[in-house]
């Protein structure tokens, strides 16, 4: 009943682990697959090892988290050892970040070699100078990266978009026109937190990305907008912590969803809880399959 597909990629369960949450090592990805996730998106991996920003990189807020991890990762070469452990246990989506179409293509090629079921291009991190959102808000740049990667790998290519723009639907159209297989929306919302007692920004990077319940309605709106503009498959992410949140994204037009922050707030059992309750809801309300629910809010 919960089976879905993102373009050509079939998923037994519609929920995936979002990039950056318990997905930097092979054993942690295996553990998440066993917890009821249909796939795990890896931490965004770059060409070289990166320690990320210095702490403080993270804090809880009233309605979510704010983080500026700064894309810490061991680099694509060493990440092969983690993929070797994880890829044989289920669907691993390789998230990558680079500064040019060539760099993205090389990283994507490696992920394909390592057994990734798809690649997710991080065109949306709000706190890494020269990467992520800084490239991902120009439809021409997005198009050139997607088409370069498409021509160098045969696994599906997903583009993860930022909500920090007023031209989101143009970005999604650029991804589709470049042959992209899906868009993933949304990454975190660029934000800031200041300690009144200390009179200073809390994150070492000053700015970070807001995630969790605070951004759910932004994400749902983003997915709805993209769906209205193009027919490219959409993976919804942002503030999902229960079946109602997931159903909102599906009804806005997403064919699958990702969960990040709620793995922290609710625990790793969040996937099995969503699976059970979403299935119950679908039975109660006469939705025979996920595909019957996709985009119903547009009708």
């Amino acid at each position: 009943m919960l089976v879905t597909s993102v373009g050509k990629l079939r998923l037994e369960k519609p929920g995936m682990v979002a990039s950056g949450i318990m997905d930097e090592t092979g054993p942690s990805m295996v553990r998440m697959l066993k917890c009821g996730a249909g796939a795990v998106v890896t931490k965004s991996i770059g060409s070289e090892p990166n320690p990320g920003h210095p702490n403080p990189t993270f804090t809880e807020l009233k309605c979510g988290y704010i983080n500026a991890m700064g894309l810490p990762n061991p680099g694509i070469e060493l990440f092969g050892a983690e993929m070797e452990i994880a890829a044989k246990s289920g669907n691993i989506i390789g998230s990558i970040y680079g500064a040019s179409p060539e760099e993205f293509s090389r990283l994507a090629g490696k992920m394909e070699e390592y057994g990734a079921a798809a690649v997710e291009l991080n065109l949306s991190c709000p706190h890494a100078a020269g990467y992520g959102m800084e490239l991902g808000t120009d439809p021409a740049v997005v198009g050139s990266i997607v088409s370069a990667v498409k021509s160098s790998v045969s696994i599906p290519v997903w583009a993860k978009l930022t909500p920090n723009t007023h031209i989101l639907k143009d970005l999604a159209i650029a991804v589709r026109d470049a042959g992209g297989d899906a868009v993933v929306a949304i990454n975190t919302v660029k934000a800031m937190a200041i300690s009144p007692q200390l009179g200073k920004p809390i994150l070492s990077n000053k700015f970070g990305g807001l995630s969790g319940p605070a951004i759910r309605s932004i994400g749902v709106r983003a997915v709805f907008e993209i769906r209205a503009a193009t027919d490219i498959p959409i993976v919804g992410v942002g503030g999902i912590s229960d079946w109602k949140d997931a159903a909102q994204y599906i009804m806005a037009g997403a064919c699958a969803f990702q969960v990040g922050s709620a793995i922290g707030t609710k625990g790793i059992d969040v996937f099995s809880a969503i699976n059970t309750e979403l299935e119950r809801f679908m039975k109660d309300y006469g939705y025979g399959s996920i595909s019957k629910m996709i985009g119903v809010a547009h009708e």
Binding site: G20, P27, S28, Y65, I263, G264
Partner: peptide, 11 residues
């Protein structure tokens, strides 16, 4: 880093 079971760096 996060301390809260989110980032996965302390595995």
């Amino acid at each position: 880093k996060c301390g809260a079971g989110v980032c996965g760096c302390c595995m």
